[in-house]
């Protein structure tokens, strides 16, 4: 059954149809939230909120974009809102930015395990230090769930701008890694 058919059923109050949509897009929504929040537990909560919001707003979906893109837009904006709230809460009690959530050893992939742990730590720190306008597109693209066009819709920027930001983020990361003594450009 296609997304459109499931959406039509969910609109009529079919919870099972909506459940199927949740199951199909769970990973994409979670990864988008993870890209925005940088924390697995926060991303889980944000994903849940995003699905609930999508169910409530189902009547406003006009099929101008795919259901997945529409859903990811909701998830992204929910996650950004959560991020702003977390940052302001953090600033109220402490100074500076949010603490860096460390990527646990368990979640490291085989690919990640191949590179030097110290270098990985540096890369992660540098990614988090990037300005949000460069970091967000870079991480959303890294999630590998969407095309550039879909990500551009989610972020509300032209596709060309998205590509430039991703390339610029990579360029800055490499430049800083070279300064730290890792390889050469």
């Amino acid at each position: 059954m296609s997304d459109a058919e499931l959406v039509a059923r969910a609109r009529q109050g079919d919870h099972a149809a909506f459940g199927e949509l949740v199951e199909r897009h769970r990973a994409a929504v979670y990864r988008a939230a993870h890209a925005a929040l940088g924390s697995a537990s926060e991303a889980e909560d944000a994903a849940q909120e995003a699905f609930l919001a999508a169910y409530q707003k189902m009547g406003t979906y006009r099929a101008e974009a795919s259901f997945k893109t529409w859903l990811l837009s909701i998830a992204w904006h929910r996650a950004l809102s959560r991020r702003r709230s977390l940052v302001s809460r953090w600033r109220r009690f402490a100074s500076g930015e949010l603490p860096e959530p460390a990527v646990s050893r368990e979640t490291r992939t085989q690919e990640g395990a191949l590179i030097d742990a110290e270098m990985a730590h540096h890369v992660e720190r540098l990614v988090r230090a990037l300005p949000a306008r460069l970091r967000d597109p870079l991480l959303l693209c890294a999630a590998g769930e969407q095309t550039y066009g879909e990500i551009a819709v989610v972020l509300g920027i032209p596709e060309g701008t998205l590509k430039w930001r991703v390339a610029e983020a990579r360029r800055q990361l490499k430049q800083r890694l070279v300064r730290l003594g890792y390889g050469h450009e």
């Binding site: 769970r26 990973a27 929504v29 979670y30 990864r31 993870h34 890209a35 940088g38 697995a40 991303a43 889980e44 994903a47 990527v103 979640t107 490291r108 992939t109 690919e111 990640g112 191949l114 590179i115 270098m119 990985a120 890369v123 992660e124 990614v127 870079l138 991480l139 959303l140 890294a142 999630a143 590998g144 990579r170 990361l173 490499k174 890694l177 890792y182």
Partner: peptide, 15 residues
């Protein structure tokens, strides 16, 4: 190296 770290940073399937 950047790709590997980025992939780790957004890895997961959700609960």
């Amino acid at each position: 190296a950047i790709d590997a770290v980025l992939h780790d940073m957004v890895a997961g399937e959700g609960p």
